[in-house]
């Protein structure tokens, strides 16, 4: 197997970068030619719409609120991780001993 010999593509990032820049230029030209540029930028129509929110700071959804669905779905997993790793120094020793014992059993052929 050759390094960087990807199955369907040749490794040429500059080529792909060129393609990307070319496409971006085409999009900008099309935008200049066909997109509307007569919208009013001084009033609120250019701002994002958040229903009922008058405070501009509240328009930012905080980091804790992002991916709430993902977190909620994996609640059980995160609870398990929390229980397993309490980040206490005793916890470090406990895991260290478990891994040393487990690896000894595997490498010495008891569990392998």
């Amino acid at each position: 197997m050759n390094i960087l010999q990807v199955e369907y593509l040749h490794w040429a990032p500059l080529f792909w970068l060129g393609i990307f820049i070319g496409l971006a230029v085409v999009v900008v030209i099309i935008g200049k030619l066909f997109f509307r540029n007569d919208y009013n930028t001084v009033d609120q129509q250019s701002l994002p719409f958040y229903s009922g929110t008058s405070n501009s700071l509240l328009q930012l959804i905080t980091a804790s609120s992002l991916y709430w669905g993902f977190k909620h779905t994996l609640d059980a997993y995160f609870l398990m991780i929390k229980r397993l790793f309490i980040s206490d120094v005793e916890d470090f020793i406990q895991w260290f001993i478990i891994i040393v014992a487990g690896m000894l059993l595997i490498l010495t052929g008891v569990l392998w």
Binding site: L84, F85, S87, D91, F92, W95, F96, I98, I99, V100, M103, L104, L107, T108
Partner: peptide, 29 residues
């Protein structure tokens, strides 16, 4: 057998210092 024990005792501390799960919790702190 002694060699294998020695190898385990050499590599697990290095794995712990590299932050390999499940010996990683010192890293975020």
């Amino acid at each position: 057998l002694l060699d294998k024990i020695a190898i385990v005792l050499l590599i697990i501390p290095l794995a712990m210092k590299s932050g390999v799960v499940p010996m990683h919790m010192w890293i975020p702190d």
